[in-house]
Structures are given as C-alpha cells and as structure tokens.
C-alpha cells in the first residue's frame, strides 16, 4: 500500500488505453507519452503497458508502507527518497516507511512512475486509464488516497542507456490529412512554415495552438467522423488543435494533417508556451521512424548489477552536494563508466 501525502498537480493512472470501445464513443485515453510509460514499466521488469502514475507539471509525494521497486521516466524530475536525491531512468529500491517526493517537472510536462509488480487500480472497460474527459477509470489521485499495488522486489535491475530529452521547441512530422483538399497550397505553407505556441488551455484531449491562421478553401461543414490522436484539426477560427490521447472519438473539424505515430509521445510532452513546428514527411519516412523508435525502445533498456545502479544513485546524491559536485564533474571528465 502507498499513501498519497500530496497528489501533485494532476496525477492519474494511465496505461496504453481503452482500445476497442470507440464505436460506443469511448475515447482511447492512455498515457499522453506512451513511450515514457513503456520505459518506466520496462525499467522495473513489468509488461510495458502496465498501469503507472502519470504526473503533470508537479509530481506527488508518496509514503510507502511496503518494500517496493520503482522507476521514473519522461519529463525530467529531481525526485528524492527521504530527502536524498535519486536518479530517473533506473530501478530504485524503496523500503517500507520511506517517503518519495517526485517534485516539479522541469522539462516536458509529464513524468511516469512505475512500480515493480504494477499498481492495481480497478479497470473500467478493460483499461486502468483514468479518463477525466469521459469520466471512466480510476479517479485522479487525491491527498490521503491509499494506492494498492502488487509489489515484488527484484534481483535484477535496469537502467536506460540514453534518456530522451524534451526541449520546449519541437518539430513534429506530419502527413497530409484526409481533408487536405479543403486547404490551398498556401495553407500547407503556413502549416509547415509557422512556429506555433502551445496555449495554456491545452490538456490531455488536445493541444490548442496559437500562431498564424490556417485558412480553408472549402467552407461547408465536415461530416462528423472518427478522429485519431495526432490529427491537426482546423476549426473556423483557423487556429490548429492537435488531438492528444484523450480526444473524443468523433470530430467535425477538417484535418489538414496528421502527426506521425513515432512523434506522438514527444507531442504528449509539450507544455504551455512550448514552440512547435510541423514538417511534412512521406508515408515511408513515417514508417521508418516508427520502426526506429520501436527498435530503440528495447535496445535502450539495459540490465545492470546492483553495483552500477548504486553508483548511479551515489552520483546523483553527490551532485546535489555543492562540494562534491565539482568532484563528480571531474570524474565524468575522466570518462568513468558511470552515466548520469
């Protein structure tokens, strides 16, 4: 059992989504950055789609009443365990009675916390994804909640060789959408030439963007139809809305372009104020990027003995200490085989 001392800004259970109910209007939901969810799970030896906590902007503070092994992946946090800094992107052993503070998310907007064995929230329609839009799945966590989990301690540990970065300027690959003929070539020039800014009213259903208007050539109403995550919709006011994982199943605004699958996880890390550009790519390039990111997922997760994991923890602790920080930097310069 884990007790929530502080829930953070918006912390919810997420997995890879509620698949197979879209014909009833049930959104897929699931992790906004599915790649980081999968990383976090693999780092604790779980099936990659297990339910984990998705934290937003500010992470929770949790007291563990049981021994556990956890891992963080996603937007950068500087978590502490009983006030001692611990690294992201590796399995971390926690003892009963210890308090884990996740802290603010410093780059990106979402970070994932997985636990070895998995959290066990009640699933709804075959998924533990918390869908605040449709009101399905477990609720967003609150102070005082007790989270149940199937903990087991591991003999093996893992770390991620090269953690991803989530800068506040992203280029997302897009393919012209099913309603590309509703737009002039000039509209595509705007789409691929303009830098858009993520608006503060963006959420898990979509990124609302601010930038140059995209004008339609056709002005009739679009017949309502199925929508995918990554669809770049153009409402009447010309300001694009890009659908995120918790979007409604049906939409009525024309889709000028669709973000490629390989870039969806990074899209889920764009926070309010982040800059965004779209780059038109071919179908072949999109598939190559997807194959590449899937191959990289498993290649990046490496098993490590307890010595290496402990050394990585020590390094993070030492870096938080002003006097030791210089020594650490010197060690890194000497190419000691310990990565951040």
């Amino acid at each position: 059992m884990i007790t929530v001392i502080d829930p953070g800004n918006l912390t919810s259970f997420q997995d890879l989504g509620r698949v197979g109910y879209a014909h009833l209007g049930v959104p897929q939901a699931g992790a906004a950055d599915s790649m980081s969810l999968r990383h976090a799970n693999l780092l604790v030896g779980n099936a990659e789609g297990s339910a984990a906590l998705e934290m937003t902007v500010n992470g929770p503070t949790l007291r563990f009443e049981t021994d556990a092994v956890v891992a963080f992946a996603g937007g950068r946090v500087e978590p502490t365990l009983d006030d001692m800094p611990i690294p992201m992107y590796q399995s971390i052993a926690i003892h009963a009675g210890q308090t884990l503070a996740c802290g603010a998310i410093l780059t990106g907007i979402r970070c994932y916390l997985a636990i070895a064995g998995g959290f066990s929230p009640n699933p709804t329609l075959a998924s533990a994804s918390s869908d605040t839009f449709a009101g399905l799945g477990p609720p967003v966590i609150r102070a005082g909640d007790r989270l149940s989990c199937e903990t087991h301690s591991l003999h093996q540990g893992w770390y991620l060789r090269s953690p991803p970065e989530f800068p506040d300027e992203a280029i997302l690959g897009v393919i012209p959408g099913p309603h590309a003929d509703w737009f002039t070539p000039a509209a595509f020039e705007v789409l691929s030439g303009c830098t858009y800014v993520v608006r503060a009213d963006s959420d898990r259903t979509g990124l609302r963007l601010r930038g140059e208007d995209i004008r339609r050539e056709k002005h009739s109403e679009l017949s309502s139809q199925g929508m995918v995550t990554g669809a770049v919709q153009i409402p009447g006011d010309g300001q694009p809305i890009v659908l995120l994982s918790n979007h409604g199943t049906i939409g009525g605004y024309p889709v000028i372009a669709v973000v490629i699958h390989a870039d969806l996880p990074r899209m889920g890390q764009l926070r309010s104020g982040a800059k965004l550009r779209f780059q038109l790519v071919s179908h072949e390039q999109a598939l190559a990027a997807l194959r590449g990111s899937e191959a990289a997922l498993h290649a990046a997760v490496a098993s490590a003995d307890s010595g290496l994991l402990a050394a990585r923890r020590l390094l993070v602790m030492a870096k938080a200490h002003p006097g030791l920080r210089q020594a650490c930097l010197q060690l890194e310069r000497w190419r000691v085989n310990v990565r951040r």
């Binding site: 197979g20 879209a22 014909h23 017949s223 139809q225 199925g226 995918v228 199943t249 598939l287 997807l290």
Partner: peptide
C-alpha cells in the same frame, strides 16, 4: 487491427502500422 469507428458517412480503421 486496433479500432473501428463508424460515423455518418465513413468508417475509420485504426491499426498498428507495423
């Protein structure tokens, strides 16, 4: 095959491209 979304004039077929 991941998802089938029927609508007014269309059916959307979502799939795992790999």
């Amino acid at each position: 095959l991941r998802e089938l979304v029927p609508a007014h004039n269309t059916l959307l077929v979502e799939y795992d491209a790999l």
